[in-house]
Design a protein around this nucleic acid. Structure first.
Lengths: 338, 338
DNA sequence: GGAAACTAGGAAAACGATTGCCGTCACGGT
DNA sequence: ACCGTGACGGCAATCGTTTTCCTAGTTTCC
């Protein structure tokens, strides 16, 4: 089998085995009634020619291609990847292959991809990516099921799977309460970002349930370490007492941690610190290692893929589905044993 | 066009336009000789039915699928993504769709993917991922061209596109020399990692060309911030004078930066600092922002894809191709203007 | 006015695989 | 001897498109 060799067709196999194409097909797929000897002969021929059935030709018949398209809204990033991998994993288990399409936040490019995918007769489409808000559907009345993962569709009838950020924020607060902190500050991303608002609101609500409140209004800024450092400055200047900080991202938390240390406050003894995203790069490099809320994106991707598979098989799950977050405790909220 | 609607076929279009299928095909593809009026009629019918030619059926004829497979050796990570995106971009421009396959470092899984891709009759395959050394080829005598990107194939006859790490290391040293530093230390990743060895060796060689040498043997460790911090301890304990540190990764550099500051050394006034990878998360959060060597992975991916396209069209480029790195200067090597 | 030269579009054969339907054989029962 | 019945495999239709070959018409030119 040299580099220039053509792919073997079932006709080649049939010829080598001395049977008709139809018989060869039946032999390889375990259909029809054939003598065991014949079956073996055909299988052996197929092996010799390293025959692999042409999936395209096959799907011409079955009407299914066993492929799905995955469109990322914005450029593929830290958040899309786990989603993508989870989905790929779940789909692979279902014998599905994935077409990757990087939309790069360009609606034209995206529409081009949608057309391409449809012409390739994908069985379904997953849309993912990060946005500050829900996004417009990729198309109306598409002939195949679509699932939005991580991002959510502006059409509430579409199937979207999103992290339960409010639940995550509640878990964060509950953990801080559980380790005995009551004077909690919240530093987070830009207010125009839906995630920042939702998390802040949920944190506030959870405290209210215990008759408490944030020691100061949420500090909205950016998602970066730089902002985390600045925010600590603001907090300290305000002279508000606080024994814990809940941060909207691990990067913010890391900045906060560095700034607190520089200001002489110990983490976690003086101030307990909790992040959001559970991004290993940050949680591990932080001194001390950072407690955080894991969005469980890989699970989310998997779950989205499973919903897509279900929809392809005729059982769609319309609507918005919240995927639970998970608390991961590290030393930034627990005093290490001496 | 409702959700349950079948895809329109060219027969539907032909019927609506009142012509034969053959004619419809010619009209849509600009073949044959047809009256302009007929062409328009067919096009209009296609538009009404939102007809998109079935790519699978089409490729049955042409023998080409206009798809390529992309296999990532290890789990998709920070390094694979830009490569992947660059490739996707270049391929998209060539009207090719990409099958994404996440090998997860599992040879069985990988072989399964290779088979799947071949049965889908991809026109070519790109293999990417990170490894400490060159990897075994994904298969011998495959019927389609294969290009290895970022990672390289152990078979020197295979087409591999890899970053010119030695060149990058030389650029780093040259930059340090250019800003007047001569007492350079090198802190890098594990010695069993090919990248670490290559970069260290190239740095040493470049210094030798100027009659200099590293102030101490390269410090091999991990790629992490934690190691960077530790290494500074070792360096300071050794009482060797140094006015610059070239780090094998941005994470190491960041750790070094934090540790130096904690030890009272100013960056860049006392010690100039340069990283490797140009990872925005690190370079931007570092205080001061970090000068680094950019592997130019997106360009590398693009370039790999272009070589694959060329190979598909009959002009393969066998062998190992080094893709140049780029120096990105920030404040960690330049004293900011007062 | 008749042959040559076009033009427009239809019919049918690929492409590779699957599958329903049939024909043929061998065998057993009456 | 004849019929019924399985077992085994071949034939041909089918999926959706492209493309090659052909057949009517219509011009054109001598």
């Amino acid at each position: 089998m040299g580099k220039l060799e053509r792919h073997a067709t079932i006709a080649d196999v049939a010829a080598l085995a001395g049977v008709s194409v139809g018989t060869a097909s039946k032999a390889l797929n375990g259909r029809g009634s054939l003598r065991e000897e014949t079956r073996m002969r055909v299988r052996e021929a197929a092996r010799q020619l390293s025959f692999e059935a042409n999936a395209g030709a096959r799907s011409l018949h079955s009407g299914r291609t066993y492929t799905v398209g995955m469109i990322t809204t914005d450029t593929i990033g830290r958040f899309s990847i786990p989603v993508l991998m989870g989905a790929e994993d779940a789909l692979g288990a279902g014998e599905m292959s994935v077409f990757l399409c990087d939309g790069r936040d360009d609606p034209i490019r995206e529409q081009y991809y949608v057309k391409t995918l449809l012409s390739r007769r994908v069985d379904g489409v997953i849309v993912t990516g990060r946005r500050t808000e829900a996004r417009a559907p990729i198309g109306a009345n598409l002939p195949v099921p679509v699932v939005y993962a991580f991002i959510s569709s502006a059409d509430p009838g579409d199937c979207s799977v999103v992290p339960d950020e409010a639940g995550g924020a509640r878990k964060a607060v509950e953990h801080l309460l559980a380790v005995g902190r009551t004077r909690i500050a919240h530093i987070t991303g830009p207010e125009h970002h839906n995630s920042a608002r939702v998390r802040a609101a949920a944190a506030g609500e959870r405290l209210t349930e215990d008759g408490l409140s944030l020691v100061a209004p949420p500090l909205f800024g950016g998602w970066s370490e730089v902002w985390g450092r600045q925010a600590v400055g603001i907090l300290l200047a305000g002279r508000t007492e606080f024994d814990a900080v809940f941060c909207g991202s691990d990067q913010i938390a890391r900045g906060v941690c560095d700034a607190l240390r520089a200001a002489g406050r110990r983490v976690p003894q003086d101030v307990a610190l909790i992040g959001f995203d559970n991004w290993d790069v940050m949680t591990e490099a932080c001194q001390p290692p950072l407690t955080s809320i894991d969005l469980n994106l890989e699970g989310l991707g998997r779950s989205a893929a499973e919903m897509l598979l279900a929809a392809i098989n005729g059982s769609p799950s319309p609507g918005r589905h919240a995927h639970p977050c998970r608390l991961v405790v590290r030393e930034s909220t627990t005093v290490p044993l001496p």
